[in-house]
Design a protein around this nucleic acid. Structure first.
Length: 272
DNA sequence: TAGTATGTTGGCGC
DNA sequence: AGCGCCAACATACT
């Protein structure tokens, strides 16, 4: 379920589980997710090495290891990192796993198998094309109104589609975009270059405000024995089409923009 | 059965 | 070049 907030939570969890730990083994039951390096190469590069740090850039996770190797991972639609305590059994859809010296295992699960993980020399990470083309991270490097306006001015696309462009801002996905535009009271179909200064200011503030809220709301360790329950939808408007707007009570709309479900309040976010 | 799914890439056409 | 649109990727749920 990965957009920036979920990936940030995954990074914090991985940091807690992995940093300072020595990898006792690497196994890849499904090598399809290994986009760079074979299972044998992963094992050779990482076995016996300590994890030095975990970082996040947009929706990518980066794990640095002794010996000069980095694992870059993208969860795509259904990827997830999970910690399994020693002796506990594993869930389905495990694509690779790190074995730790105390018997705990860190799993990469991914039902739909869209997720990818690359083993790279740490020195080669900066040149990885997927990372090199990312815009500034929406949470770690928030754009101020001036820079945001300058970028928006260059695009006539719907502001919602523009916000999801990873080369403009890194990390915002389909849910984030709807929720942020609701906070900023901007209609998602508005061309990016049509926003007034005060709308840009609201947008610049809504991005970190929403991300702070979402990271907090989704924090919590993914540990296998905590059953995944179907929680109530935590979002203000995403997935709430037809329900009353939490701000004004009007019926929330669902429409498709650039092929993606988009939610908005036709009153609070009236196109002007 | 058809429609839907929090992401990304690549092809086609304008 | 930039953009919209669509299919593909693979699987599950309603």
């Amino acid at each position: 379920m990965p957009e920036l907030p979920e990936v940030e939570v995954a990074a914090r969890n991985l940091r807690q589980w992995m940093v300072g730990e020595v990898v006792a083994g690497v196994e890849a039951p499904d090598e399809k997710v290994l986009a760079a390096g074979t299972g044998a190469e992963w094992e050779a590069a990482l076995c016996g090495r300590r994890c030095l740090g975990v970082a996040r850039r947009a929706k990518y996770l980066l794990m640095d290891f002794e010996g000069g190797h980095t694992v870059v991972a993208h969860l795509r639609m259904t990827g997830k990192f999970v910690l399994v305590p020693a002796g506990e059994s594993e869930p389905a859809y495990v694509r690779f796993r790190f074995l730790l010296t105390d018997g705990r295992r860190v799993l990469f699960r991914d039902m739909r198998r869209f997720g990818r993980a690359w083993l790279l020399p740490t020195a080669a990470v900066a040149a990885m094309p997927e990372l090199a083309k990312l815009g500034p991270d929406a949470y770690l490097e928030p754009l101020g109104p001036r820079e945001l306006a300058e970028r928006a001015r260059r695009s006539r696309r719907p502001v919602k589609t523009w916000l999801m462009d990873q080369t403009v801002i890194g990390g915002l996905g389909n849910i984030c975009a709807s929720e942020i535009l609701f906070r900023a009271r901007i209609a998602p179909e508005r061309p990016a270059d049509s926003l007034a200064d005060e709308e840009i200011e609201r947008l610049a503030a809504a991005i970190p405000d929403y991300l702070e809220w979402a990271i907090r709301a989704q924090s919590g360790p993914e540990i296998i024995y905590i059953a995944e329950r179907r929680d109530a939808n935590p979002f203000a408007i995403y997935g709430h089409g037809g329900e009353p707007c939490p701000r004004c009570g009007a019926a929330l709309a669902r429409k498709v923009i650039a092929g993606r479900s988009t939610f908005s309040c036709p009153v609070c976010q009236a196109p002007s």
